[in-house]
Structures are given as structure tokens and as C-alpha cells.
Design a protein around this nucleic acid. Structure first.
Lengths: 116, 116
DNA sequence: TACCGTTATGTCCACATAAATATAACGAAT
DNA sequence: ATTCGTTATATTTATGTGGACATAACGGTA
């Protein structure tokens, strides 16, 4: 087995709320499935939990990252906004920046690694 | 007004354990105070909690980051090892890397409360 | 109109994590 | 030998987070 070591970046605002890997994953899954419900199921979470994450994200930024509609064909759905796309991109880039950094690799090397 | 937006980096190993801002802060405080107890108090945590963090850190890496002694003058104390110092340095550099990155700044600007 | 799948929201409860409390060991100094 | 402050560890208690469950609204379609 190769490296079990991974890294997470979390962006915090004062009150304790923040944007981390969970919400980023939700964003990607919503873009893919066009549904809060389906996106949540992808990670084995209840609709309520998925919806709360979206709600928190939307409140966190100065405009919604996800817009949803209910009723209609298919019962409704959700879309990632342009702002959502930009946040997703920056966040992914940030994850890459950390993952590829010599500092992260240095710490990884110091961790006790399982023999492969 | 100070910036309400901050970032955290967490390094995870497979089992769910990991190294994040809390343990890094403990490490710095132990270097400063030469005591697990005093370091914990700095963050308003019980000795038990502080000790558990140190224990977990030490087990996480392939050698201890903190060594402690009990009894003697002053009752005992703790020291950050050379490995601990290196981990601390790399972790701080990683935090700086993220904080100064254009991606983090981009996301900060999209948040409701932009940094000063 | 009835149906359907989704969004939207509230309430209650289990469980995992953190806090509180207690106790002992240690070793230098007095 | 006693004292002292710290490390080390077990056990009990509290808390808050997520999960389970319930209900309603919505708007196309048949």
C-alpha cells in the first residue's frame, strides 16, 4: 500500500463556521448530480445533513454557491452557481498546492508509515 | 479590525488520527513553557486533554515529538525533541504557504467578511 | 385532480467526544 | 521523611453533533 497520508484545508470565519473538504465534496457532487439529495447519498448522508451543509455554505459567502428549485419535472433539483464554481476551483487548487508542497512531503516522511 | 478569516491545515493518516492546528499550538506552547500542564492551561484545557494530544502526537510520528519527565525539581516537565522542532517548522511553513497563497486570498474575498 | 420526487424545516434521541474528578507515581529539595 | 508540582492514567459525567423520523410545499406530468 502506498501512502495513507492525506491533507485537508479548512477556511474559517470568526464564528466557527467554515469551508472544508466536506462542503467542497458536496459542491462537486451537486454539480455532477444536479441534486442535493443525490449528492448527499453519494456520501451516505441524510438529505437533512446535505441540505444543512448547502445552507451553511450559501450563508457563508456573499452570494449562494448553490441554487435549488422544488417541484416540476423530476421533483426539483439544484445547480452550482458561477460563484460556486470559482470557489470550487480555488479550493481544489489550494488542496493541490498543499499536497505538492515540500513542507507537506517533509511532514509525511516524518510520520510513521506502514511498511509497503 | 482584525481579519476574521483564517485557514487551517490538517494532515491525516489513514485511521482518522492526524496533526492539525491544535497539536501544533500545543507543541509551540510546550517549547515555551517546558510543561505539558502549563501549555494546556494556555488554551484553557485540562491536563488530561493536553496529555492526550501529546500522546497522540508521539504515537503518530516514528519518534516522539515531546519527551516528559516526572518528579524532581519543579515536579517535572517536558521538552520538544529535534523531530518535534522540525515538524513544527514544516507545519508553520505550510500554514504560511496557504495563508499567502492567491487561492486562499481569492476565497477570502468571496466570503461575506473579507479580511481587512 | 392525483401523483411523484425533490426541496425545505422541525423535533427527538443515540452516541461519540470532551470535561470533570480522582488517584497514584515520581524524584529533587528541604 | 515530608513536601511539592508535575506526569500518568482510570472512571464518571456532561454536551453537542449527527442521525432518524415526520411533515409540508412545490410544480411539472399523466
Amino acid at each position: 500500500m502506498k501512502s495513507k497520508v492525506s491533507c485537508q484545508v479548512r477556511i474559517m470565519v470568526g464564528n466557527g463556521l467554515g469551508m472544508g473538504p466536506g462542503k467542497a465534496a458536496m459542491l462537486r457532487a451537486i454539480r455532477e448530480t444536479r441534486s442535493i439529495n443525490a449528492a448527499g447519498k453519494k456520501f451516505g448522508m441524510s438529505y437533512r445533513r446535505a441540505w444543512l451543509l448547502v445552507e451553511e455554505m450559501n450563508n457563508l459567502f456573499d452570494a449562494p454557491l448553490v441554487t435549488a428549485r422544488r417541484g416540476g419535472a423530476g421533483g426539483g433539483g439544484a445547480e452550482v452557481t458561477g460563484l460556486g464554481e470559482r470557489v470550487m476551483k480555488s479550493y481544489s487548487d489550494l488542496e493541490q498546492l498543499v499536497t505538492k508542497s515540500p513542507q507537506f512531503r517533509a511532514i509525511s516522511r516524518m510520520l510513521q508509515q506502514p511498511p509497503d
